[in-house]
């Protein structure tokens, strides 16, 4: 029943996220022929500097279907929207619950169980949110005369989930500090944006950035899983969820 309650609390965020991401995934596949048409124009772009280099790299990635999918879906759309929906799913909980908070606390359930159920429900939803739209890609690829490996989808989705869970956990932790849904959401997105900016423009060795691990770039480029990044992300998520549980257990309501 606690699962059911957690589901009721997050279902609209989850369902909206799922619909948006599925549309985005389908759109990326179906736009491939248009991208092929535009490639000659994009190749003539003359931009200098670090941004220019990144644009040229990005254009190069669009030449092949697998690299196009990786860069557009796992590297951009899913990263941006997935991070936002992860933060959105992580918000809420006992503190910001508009109704039923005291009622929930009056039930014979420990706070530890409440928060773990909520976290587990959110993480399960996040996993579905990452996996199901990604599975649309190999499913729809024949429609544009291409194919994309199911195995690649599973590896990229798994890596993505492990890393994006960091932002879910951050929002969960912030939700035990602030009593509304907006501050945890905005702060988590602000942290993600700051990390993205650092990774793109300021980090001396961007290959180690969190978003590179999230898109499993090493798997795409040379078939190696970013184990260190994955383990560090999982540890960060676990620490933040533990912090959220401790915060809720100690709090007066």
């Amino acid at each position: 029943m606690l699962w059911y309650r957690s589901w009721l609390e997050t279902r609209w965020r989850f369902l909206i996220g799922l619909a948006v991401l599925m549309c985005a995934a389908a759109g990326i596949v179906l736009l491939w022929p248009k991208v092929v048409e535009l490639l000659p124009v994009a190749s003539n772009l003359q931009v200098s500097g670090r941004i220019g280099k990144q644009i040229r790299e990005s254009v190069e990635l669009q030449r092949e279907y697998p690299s196009y999918i990786w860069s557009q879906w796992f590297g951009k759309n899913l990263t941006n929207m997935g991070t936002m929906f992860a933060a959105l799913l992580g918000t809420g909980g006992l503190l910001s619950q508009r109704s039923g908070g005291l009622f929930m606390l009056s039930l014979p359930v420990s706070r530890k169980r409440l928060i773990w159920t909520q976290a587990a429900t959110g993480l399960a939803e996040l996993f579905v949110l990452v996996l199901v739209p990604s599975l649309l890609i190999p499913l729809l690829s024949p429609a544009v005369g291409k194919s994309y490996g199911w195995g690649d989808v599973l590896v990229h989705s798994a890596c993505f989930f492990v890393v994006v869970a960091v932002f879910f956990s951050l929002a969960s932790l912030l939700s035990t500090i602030f009593s509304d849904v907006w501050r945890p959401l905005l702060l988590a997105i602000a942290v993600a944006s700051a990390m993205w900016y650092l990774e793109l423009f300021a980090l001396p060795r961007p290959h180690y950035g969190i978003f590179r691990v999230m898109s499993a770039e090493t798997w795409f480029r040379n078939g190696q899983l970013p184990w260190q990044g994955l383990l560090a992300s999982a540890a960060a998520s676990a620490a933040m969820l533990y912090g959220a549980a401790v915060s809720i257990i100690r709090r007066d309501f």
Binding site: L8, S99, G100, L102, F103, S106, L107, P108, V109, S110
Partner: peptide, 18 residues
């Protein structure tokens, strides 16, 4: 938890799941 298993509670705001 054991106490709450044997206790019924009605809060001042009649807080329920709306």
């Amino acid at each position: 938890v054991a106490i709450r298993r044997r206790t019924g509670f009605v809060s001042e705001d009649k807080d329920l799941f709306d």
